[in-house]
Design a protein around this nucleic acid. Structure first.
Length: 475
RNA sequence: CGGGGUGUGGCGCAGUCCGGUUAGCGCACCUGCUUUGGGAGCAGGGGGCCGUAGGUUCGAAUCCUACCACCCCGACCA
């Protein structure tokens, strides 16, 4: 059993903090709610960036960068937007030792500064669409923070697109939430619900918001990505018009979408266990570690030489030979498990002798003996199997914790145990959501796209409903 | 912002009630030797103005006052 990690069953929240700390993912910074992302954690973020960036570019998007400081007045141009974000903005009032003419907001999100630029970029329907993404940091002064899940400053990507028509903007909004779903399943190995947020939960300034929602091991939901259809709200606020082919002057339609370092928190809470972090192979900065075993200097030389010979021609970023001499193999086994490395290869004198190695997988702790001959192929196959296995396990857990409930009494009784609850709720009535939150500290997570037609009555108001929504307690 | 808690080497803690040499312990760290197939052993060593600022006292980690920070439980949120 791993030293220094609280068991999930004893205290899930403490377990999470322990895993982040022991795996050396991140530290608290001197400023409340901020974190230092250490190489182990940042390496995973880099992987996420690489994979997602490719998916964005394959769908026609390009990257750009907009400034971090935004004139305060910009935020105020869209009524709902300012109401939603003003309370959590950090504001710069001084620069160069002088009080500023106008305070500058550290971006909580970049719609306003970007749409201010788009005004000058867009004149004709021929300028559209604009499909831009940016990788950036943002700052939101949250009341309560947790490493990766909610930090004062966090890293994310935000896509900001401009379109000639409502339909095109809608198509983009939908396309991007599907890309998030695909990324979550294929890379994070995290199954997600895909659907629409209720009005109460949508982005401040959007017509509607689509989202992906994962279910963590403790039964709480995690919003893992959002895609907003902004309609013409920001175009109107920033006066962004174009002349269409029919000669008419029209406001531009917009979308914005983002995922953040929160995904790393989601990854941890989806796969990790009481022995520490578990990284899905496709996101592992280091998929394979090789631990040499020896009793003396002569053996050490032999074993390491053999390990080098065995891995000749392998991608150097794919593996690492842990030749540190001041730790014993057992220590290294535990350390790499703690850090979630998907596969560990053990090679010692007896393996050098037999031409085989011992391969241990992080997800199941199974060890197998494999010949050095043709090892790379087998290792790659094992990594694929781990990736698939993690997704399968997470899917089964999510399904086992998805409940269909009809009575509010039963819901209230069971909601505390966690899980997704498929229920009839009149999501168009804000009072229903208020009541739900007040009674149960749970919310409607989303109205799934694939909700089938089914007749029932709202378990709070009794109003007839034609499909079920999904409610849960969430992070 | 309400309720509860905690501030002592990098981390985790003891000491505080009842003031008194040089502030301890475990882990981690450094050096050396022996070790090395699931978190090694021994020996030696480095590292602290005890959250901050005042006060009481011959003397304060310990008593008094104020402030600050962080953590947990709620309200706010990706």
């Amino acid at each position: 059993m791993a030293k220094g990690i609280t068991k999930r069953a004893d205290d899930y929240s403490q377990w999470y903090i322990d895993v982040v700390r022991k795996a050396e993912m991140a530290d608290h910074s001197p400023v409340k709610g901020c974190m230092v992302i250490k190489p182990t954690g940042y390496g995973i973020w880099e992987k996420i960036q690489q994979r997602l960036d490719r998916m964005f570019k394959e769908t026609g998007h390009v990257n750009a960068y907009f400034p971090m400081l935004i004139p305060e007045s910009f935020l105020k141009k869209e009524a709902e937007h300012v109401e939603g974000f003003a309370p959590e903005c950090a504001v710069v009032t001084h620069g160069g030792g002088k009080k500023l003419e106008e305070p500058l907001v550290i971006r909580p999100t970049s719609e306003t500064i970007i749409w201010d630029s788009y005004r000058t970029w867009i004149n004709s329907y021929r300028d559209l669409p604009i499909l831009i993404n940016q990788w950036a940091n943002v700052c939101r002064w949250e009341m309560r923070t947790r490493l990766f899940l909610r930090t004062t400053e966090f890293l994310w990507q935000e896509g900001h697109t401009a379109h000639a028509t409502h339909e095109e903007a809608e198509e983009e909004t939908y396309k991007m939430v599907q890309i998030y779903r695909e990324f979550a399943e294929e890379y994070l190995a995290m199954p997600v619900l895909v659907g629409k947020k209720t009005d109460a939960e949508k982005f401040a300034g959007a017509l509607h918001t689509y989202c992906i929602e994962g279910l963590m091991q403790d039964g709480k939901a995690l919003q893992a990505g959002t895609s907003h259809h902004l309609g013409q709200n920001f175009a109107k606020a920033f006066d962004v018009k174009f002349q269409d082919s029919d000669k008419e002057l029209k406001y531009v339609h917009a979308s914005s979408w983002g995922v953040s370092t929160r995904l790393i928190g989601g990854m941890i809470m989806t796969h990790s266990d009481d022995n520490g972090l578990v990284i899905p192979p496709k996101l592992a900065p280091l998929p394979v570690v090789i631990v040499p075993i020896y009793r003396n200097d002569e053996q050490r030389e032999q074993v390491i030489a053999k390990a080098e010979e065995m891995t000749a021609g392998w991608d150097p970023l794919f593996f690492k030979i842990d030749n540190r001499d001041h730790y014993k193999p057992g220590y290294k086994f535990n350390e790499w498990e703690l850090k979630g490395i998907p596969l560990r290869i053990e090679i010692g004198p007896r393996d050098v002798e037999s031409g085989e190695v011992v391969v241990a997988r992080r997800d199941t702790s199974e060890k197998v003996t494999l010949p050095m001959e043709g090892l790379l192929e087998k290792v790659e196959a094992l990594l694929d199997d781990i990736q698939a296995n993690l997704l399968k396990a997470a899917k089964e857990r999510t399904e086992a914790n998805t409940h269909t409930v009809d009575s509010y009494e039963e819901y209230k009784k069971r909601i505390g145990d966690g899980g997704f609850f498929r229920v009839f709720l009149d999501h168009e009535n804000p009072k229903v959501e208020e009541q739900l939150q007040a009674d149960t500290r749970s919310t409607i997570r989303c109205i799934p796209f694939d909700a089938e037609r089914e007749e029932g009555e709202c378990m709070i108001s009794g109003k007839p409903c034609h499909y079920r929504v999904v409610a849960a307690q969430s992070y």
